[in-house]
Amino acid sequence: MAKFNLKINGKDMEVDVDPQTPMLWVLRDHLDLTGTKYGCGIAQCGACTIHLNGTATRSCMLPVSVVGDNEITTIEGLAEEANHPVQQAWLEHDVPQCGYCQAGQIMSAASLLKSNPSPSDEQIEAAMSGNICRCGTYVRIKEAIKTAAKIQNA
């Protein structure tokens, strides 16, 4: 066990865990931030996507010991009023079915739009192909990302 000081959603947080513990479980088990989901544990599905200094990162394979003072953002902290352009667009397109994958999808999409404010279809597909949606909401996700880009650039 070891103590770690983490910066999560703009707040300082401290946990005392095995240094190998993936951030996914630190968030879910120790900080009760359960918006970030477990889907595979091997960086194949994207359900656990968080931002590490604004960049989409799979938290299931990110040991807490390597986070250091890098800033972590989870779905709960993406926007104060849950009104990030991506979240707004998600509601407008009524994207979710079961909803389980959607936090990860939204975090990947938000990261994409940060680095590329007007992505092409191909760029959206490339950035989002690490996120599985078993319910098959891909067409709506893509449309919502285009709408989010418009909201963001307006």
Partner: peptide
């Protein structure tokens, strides 16, 4: 009509039994 749980889903609210503590 929009999904009545849509907003909770996009906020990452506790909706699933895995989220229960």
């Amino acid at each position: 009509k929009k999904n009545v749980e849509g907003k909770k889903i996009i906020k990452g609210d506790k909706l699933f039994s895995l989220d229960i503590k």
